[in-house]
């Protein structure tokens, strides 16, 4: 009995089983399988065009893979559309920020909670009783748990479009946290950030895991960050998983280094990271 309970604790929160996804003749994902261990930070790395964002899209229900299955907390969600997947706790941020530029920071964050609120159309028109209570509670929770935590108090009423890039990325994380995530998927959360902003973000990500108990799946090119914060690393190349393991193992893998150096389109940052990796 006890063993069984233990087994359940360690059961992967997310299981991707042999997913294949093609756009016309292009195979973006080929027979990709992976498990995400709860309470951990799993990094998904690979050169540009490897299929990382496509995999995120397949997991969040935005793309329909041609074959394969996806399980979330033991439940087969392969046929579920995107909105219900968001509701059961799959939250994500986007490689190219996908905030609502005309709305304020606060409204963007509130949007994250949409699926968990109950106000109906008719109730909304009168804004009396439950809708008001619900809105005020939401506001208080966002203020106390998210805005304080991510240190964005000073911009809560600012329209998102007017904010610098690094802050927009942070607001996107805030919105994802408002979704009551069980699994948080971050697509290149520090791309284009300077060292200081990157370090802030790394701290937030670690805190989300440790204090919020949220499992994290992260796509990132910044190898130093990946090696620093992740518990597991999965390497994707041309739509296939070519390596996986703890950071130290993956670091030593020759095929991984080859995949990065072999792809002509890698940015200088990646090249530098790989060199750093090899040196360390």
């Amino acid at each position: 009995m006890i063993e069984e309970a233990d087994a359940r604790v360690d059961a992967p929160i997310l299981q991707v089983e042999a997913i294949s996804l093609a756009f016309g003749g292009l195979n973006a994902l080929r027979n990709v399988s992976l498990d995400v261990v709860p309470g951990c930070i799993t990094a998904l790395v690979g050169p540009n065009g490897a299929g990382k964002t496509s995999l995120f899209n397949a997991i969040s229900g935005f793309y329909r893979p041609q074959s394969g299955r996806v399980f979330f907390e033991g439940r087969d969600i392969t046929r579920l559309s995107a909105p219900p997947r968001a509701k059961i706790g799959l939250a994500r941020t986007f490689q190219n920020i996908a905030l609502f530029r005309g709305l304020t920071v606060l409204d963007n964050i509130k949007l994250g909670r949409h699926a968990h609120l109950r106000t109906s159309l008719v109730e909304a028109l009168f804004y009396y009783g439950r809708p008001q209570r619900e809105e005020i509670e939401l506001r208080a929770e966002i203020e106390q748990r998210i805005i304080d935590f991510l240190e964005i108090d000073h911009i809560r009423h600012a329209p998102v479009g007017a904010l610098p890039y690094g802050l927009q990325k942070r607001v996107e994380l805030a919105r994802a946290l408002a979704m009551k995530p069980r699994l948080l998927m971050l697509d290149e959360p520090v791309a284009g950030m300077n060292r200081e902003e990157t370090e802030d973000m790394a701290r937030f990500i670690l805190d989300v895991r440790d204090e919020w108990g949220v499992t994290i799946l992260i796509v990132e090119h910044d190898m130093r960050l990946v090696m620093d914060i992740s518990d597991h690393v999965i390497v994707l190349n041309f739509g296939e998983v070519i390596a996986r393991g703890v950071p130290a193992e993956v670091q030593k893998n020759e095929e991984v280094a080859k995949a990065y150096l072999g792809s002509g389109e890698i940015g200088s940052q990646v090249r530098q990271s790989v060199t750093e990796m090899a040196a360390s």
Partner: peptide
């Protein structure tokens, strides 16, 4: 309320609205 915010989300980016 959430209804009005959802409308605006659909106007501005209906793809990410769905993912929310």
């Amino acid at each position: 309320t959430r209804v009005g915010r959802a409308f605006i989300a659909i106007r501005d980016r209906d793809v990410s609205a769905e993912l929310l």
